[in-house]
Design a protein around this nucleic acid. Structure first.
Lengths: 196, 196
DNA sequence: GGTATTTCTTATCTTAAGTTAACGTCCGCA
DNA sequence: TGCGGACGTTAACTTAAGATAAGAAATACC
C-alpha cells in the first residue's frame, strides 16, 4: 500500500467529514493505485461506469459527444474525485467520456464497494450524502454562471479561480467548450482582453 | 394533521426510498402545512434559509439578482421539494429568492429537524444522500443543456417536457431567463417556430 | 532534426442574440 | 369602469458569436 497516497485521500475525505481509524480502515482494502497515460480513458460513453477515482497527480477532462463533436464540460485536478458519477448512481450507460489530459496517478475504488460501506456504516452513508451535496453546490454555481455571466465574464472568472496555472496549460479548445463557446470565440475574447 | 397532504409527501419520498411506518413517523410531527399567496416569498436573498417545503399545490420560481435584474433559474411544481437548499446546507445567506407564482399550499419542515433525523437514523441519512444525488443529476442535465444546446433547442426541450401545460401559463419573461436569453429573444424564437 | 499533426490566431461572412423603443393588449385594482 | 402598470410583440440598430478557411505557431512523433 502506498501510504502517502492513502494519506492524501484521507485528508480529502476529511474535508467532508472526519472518520475515525476504524471507519477509514473499511475503505482501504478496496483502494487500488492506477496509472493512466495521457489520452487514456477512465470512463467511456455508452458503457456503464463502476469506479470512482481520486486524483493524486495529473489532470483529466470529461466530455459529451454531440453531432460527432466533443463538448468538454468538466476538468479534474489533483485532490479531486473523478467519476462518471451519474452512471454509477443510475447504473445506466455513461453519457460522458473521461480522458487523461496528462499522465495521471489515481487511487481507484469500485462504486459497489462504496455502496457496501454505505450499507454497513451510517458514517459512510453520511459521507455519501455530503459528497453529493458538494457536487450539487458546484453544479449550481456552474449553472448560475452559465445563465448570468457572459462568455467573457465566465472566462475571467475561470482565470480568477485558484486553478489559473493549470487552466493555462490545458488546450484552449477544451477550455472554450467548458465555457460554452467555440475555440475561435475564445481566441477573440483573449485578443480583446489583451488590448485592455 | 392533513392526511392526504402527508400521504402525498410520503409517496414523493418513496420515489427516493421506502420508509417503514416507524421511520416515516419520525418526520410527521415536524411537518406543518402552509399557504402562500401569489407573490409571497418562501426564501429571501441575503437571509439564511432554514426550511424545506414540499409543494402540494401551485408553482413557484426562484431567482438570483444581478445588476438589479432578476434572473429566474428554476421553477417548482406540485410534488417537488422547494428550498434554498444550498443556504440550508451551508448556513450562509441565501443567494436566491423563492417566490410563489400562484397561490400555493406547502408542507414545510425545518432543515435542522431533517438534520436531527439524519443523526438519529441511518435510513433518513440515506434519504438525504439520495435527495442530494437526485438534485445533482438534475443540475448536471440542466448544465449540459446550457452548454450543448442552442436557446431554440432548449426552448423546444422545455416544451417537450411533461410540464408544457404549466410552462405555458408562466409569464414568458421568467421562462426566457430560465433559458438564459432575453424576453425579446424568446419572442423571436417563438415567432420563428410558428412559421415552420 | 525534420516532418506531420494539432492547436491557435486572424480574417471574412453570416447569423442570432442583446438593446432600446414603440405599440397594443391584458389585467388588477382603485 | 376606467386608469396604470405589466407583458408580449415587433422593428431598427448594435454587438458578439458561429462557420469556414487560411496561415502561423507549437507539439508530437518517428
Amino acid at each position: 500500500m502506498n501510504a502517502p497516497a492513502l494519506k492524501h485521500l484521507r485528508t480529502a475525505i476529511h474535508r467532508f467529514l472526519k472518520l475515525d481509524d476504524a471507519e477509514w480502515d473499511m475503505l482501504v482494502p478496496y483502494t487500488e493505485e492506477r496509472q493512466l497515460a495521457k489520452h487514456e480513458l477512465f470512463a467511456v460513453e455508452g458503457k456503464a461506469a463502476h469506479e470512482v477515482g481520486f486524483m493524486l497527480e495529473g489532470n483529466m477532462r470529461h466530455y459529451y459527444t454531440r453531432d460527432g463533436e466533443e463538448k468538454t464540460t468538466y476538468f479534474y485536478f489533483e485532490g479531486h474525485f473523478v467519476s462518471s458519477y451519474i452512471s454509477c448512481l443510475t447504473g445506466k450507460p455513461s453519457e460522458l467520456t473521461i480522458e487523461a489530459l496528462t499522465d495521471c496517478t489515481l487511487l481507484v475504488f469500485k462504486y459497489k464497494d462504496l455502496q457496501k460501506l454505505y450499507d454497513l456504516s451510517h458514517k459512510w452513508e453520511r459521507f455519501g450524502r455530503v459528497l453529493a451535496e458538494y457536487l450539487a453546490i458546484g453544479l449550481e454555481e456552474r449553472m448560475v454562471g452559465l445563465l448570468m455571466l457572459s462568455p467573457e465574464e465566465r472566462y475571467l472568472q475561470l482565470l480568477d479561480s485558484n486553478k489559473q496555472k493549470i487552466i493555462e496549460r490545458i488546450p484552449q479548445h477544451y477550455v472554450s467548450s467548458y465555457l460554452g463557446i467555440t475555440p475561435v470565440s475564445l481566441s477573440r475574447i483573449r485578443a480583446r482582453l489583451l488590448k485592455k
